[in-house]
Amino acid sequence: MQKRNMTCIVCPVGCRMEVEVDDDGRVTGVKNNACARGKKYADTEITNPQRTLTSTVRIDGAAESFLPVRTAEPISKGRLSDAMAVIRALRVSAPVSMGDALANFDGVDIIACKTTDTRTQ
């Protein structure tokens, strides 16, 4: 069994948790978490860390040249750079509405974070 210190990233409180992990890599105890989400975070963080990826993609026909996007759900932390490669290759056209799925990565949608103003300069 080992103890690990971990900062919970679920909300801005950022609880500094102490996580007990058994020899099989399972979480057996979480301390200093202010809420239940902390425990859940500790579980996934130990077994398969997940992150929401945010970035921008090129957009044509909008007032701005780039559109903010994110993964609709967290994806595996180890896959962030692969997801970035997909996002970097992506190019979309206006109009786009917030929440529109623009691509898919590992079964998770990459969605628009903004509704474009289609009027041009």
């Binding site: 945010t54 903010p68 994110r70 917030m98 974070c113 903004k114 509704t115």
Partner: peptide, 8 residues
């Protein structure tokens, strides 16, 4: 939410 989503 992201900043743009919050604003939107």
């Amino acid at each position: 939410l992201t900043g743009p989503e919050y604003a939107q």
